[in-house]
Design a protein around this nucleic acid. Structure first.
Length: 419
RNA sequence: GCGAUCGUAGCUCAGUUGGUUAGAGCGCCGGUUUGUGGUACCGGAGGUCGGGGGUUCGAGACCCCUCGAUCGCCCCA
């Protein structure tokens, strides 16, 4: 007889259980509650799309598309991709379902995403995000609304030591002029940059600004600032965002080096990042951004739609869960113990009644009869009802002294002769 | 794609410069004690030491390969 080898989980996937799963659920529940306060409508999206949805949105040639997506061919030979982000799919749905009629449309969703990357702390191949978007809104108030929600969410999750880092990339023209200035500036010191940044100079010069290499950092401080290149309109937009945040009571800090890699981003870019030396920073390792987003006025057009302004953010549920602290599962209201096997039918009857009455209830009726009560005692519960047979006949014992236990006891006294 | 560290029981881990039959705690199963009880004690099951090859009289330990995990780099939509 050949021993069957247990299949292994896919690299980068997680089986979340116990306190981690409780923390995960807490994040999702809090998000659902807060998004309703801000009147974001729930949407459910497919987990896969035609590959072009993402390749057009993100850019055909980037490493991101060519190497880091989970793409495959279906039986008809069409290239499909497991969603690596929510935004492109939502933008596609906005166009294909005629959601323009609802603009400005505030939507929120959450669920699994997939990226073909090497796993490390806070990064998995299947991971989970919460996501909020406002489509068809070009006003800075939309940015403020979105950021106020993000800020309140983090507070309601009890996450501290995290600050909103805010930047503007300007409009398309300001951004392009700034980009050229950066290339010129860094090209002049090319030989002194890190190898990585010499390559970035060709592929993605803005990224040099947030390089971790000290060889680059010495030049970053004096690099050209976007502010110099902002058009009047772009400056007014950013001023409206920041004054709106101040009015909403959202703390923020200017981060001139914060950039986005993709061309469709305009104006606002932001990340919530743990403060240096905070507990949150220590808990997250090198993956420090816990919530990020920006304005992507160019995206819907790149998917073949009309020019449509939009802004959104997403946050990794796993990373947030790491910051919310231990979440113990809630205690069971009542544990029913059948201390002998002949009590099992009565115990099952009691269980059914307790659950009908809205009490959470669980049964212990296996293993050594002598140890069943001890098992119940070790289980977190408000109350225990234990059934056994003795020379006097059926006896029951109630244990527990707290408000919930009193409710359980009243219910038990009412049902005990009818089970 | 690159680098570092790690892999011994269900879990957390010990195991000396290579040396007899691989251990502990917790958990699990059973028994004794207690008998309105969260106690204590006794016993049991469970390991091809991630896998393969090599060095050696002898490998959990040393070498090579491989698989996996963790953390970091690149990338970060």
């Amino acid at each position: 007889m050949s021993k069957i080898k247990t299949p292994q989980a896919i690299r980068g996937t997680q089986d979340i259980f116990g306190p981690d799963a409780e923390a995960f659920a807490f994040v999702v529940e809090t998000f659902e509650r807060v998004r309703k306060l801000y009147r974001f409508r729930r949407v459910e999206m497919p987990v896969f799309e035609k590959t072009e949805v993402f390749s057009r949105a993100i850019g055909e040639t980037t490493d991101v598309v060519s190497k880091e997506m989970y793409s495959f061919e279906d039986r008809g030979g069409e290239s499909l991709t497991l969603r690596p982000e929510f935004t492109a799919g939502i933008a596609r749905a906005f166009l294909t379902n005629g959601w323009q009629q609802h603009a400005p449309l505030k939507v929120a969703t959450h669920g699994p995403l997939f990226r073909y990357e090497r796993p490390q702390k806070g990064r998995y191949r299947q991971f989970h995000q919460i996501d909020a978007e406002i489509l068809g809104a070009g006003e800075p108030q939309a940015d403020v609304e979105l950021l106020a929600m993000a800020d309140q969410l983090l507070r309601e999750l009890g996450i501290e030591g995290v600050t909103l880092h805010l930047n503007t990339l300007g409009d398309a023209h300001s951004r392009e002029v700034w980009r050229r200035a950066l290339i010129e500036y860094f090209a002049a010191v090319r030989g002194e940059l890190s190898e990585d940044s010499q390559e970035r100079l060709e592929k993605n010069p803005l990224r040099i600004l947030d390089s971790k290499d000290p060889r680059d950092r010495q030049f970053v401080a004096d690099a050209p600032k976007i502010d110099v290149f902002l058009s009047d309109e772009a400056r007014m937009f950013f001023d409206a965002v920041t004054s709106g945040l101040d009015a909403a009571g959202v703390n923020w800090t200017r981060a001139e080096g914060l950039v986005r890699g993709l061309d469709y981003y305009r104006h606002t870019a932001f990340e919530f990042i743990p403060d240096e030396g905070s507990a949150a920073a220590a808990a997250l390792g090198s993956q420090s951004t816990i919530l990020g987003g920006g304005r992507y006025d160019g995206l819907l057009y790149s998917l073949g739609g009309p020019h449509t302004p939009a802004v959104g953010w997403a946050a990794g549920i796993e990373r947030l869960a790491m910051l919310v602290g231990e979440k113990e599962p809630t205690a069971t209201d009542v544990i029913v113990v059948a201390e002998s096997d002949d009590m099992i039918p009565k115990a099952i009857g009691a269980l059914a009644k307790f659950r009908e009455l809205g009490f959470s209830a669980d049964l212990i009726a296996s293993g050594s009869p002598r140890k069943r009560f001890d098992k119940a005692v070790k289980t977190p519960a408000s109350a225990i009802v234990s059934l056994r047979t003795s020379v006097e006949g059926v006896t029951s014992n109630f244990r527990g002294s707290n408000p919930k236990a009193s409710e359980v006891e009243a219910a038990w006294n009412a049902m005990r002769h009818n089970i």
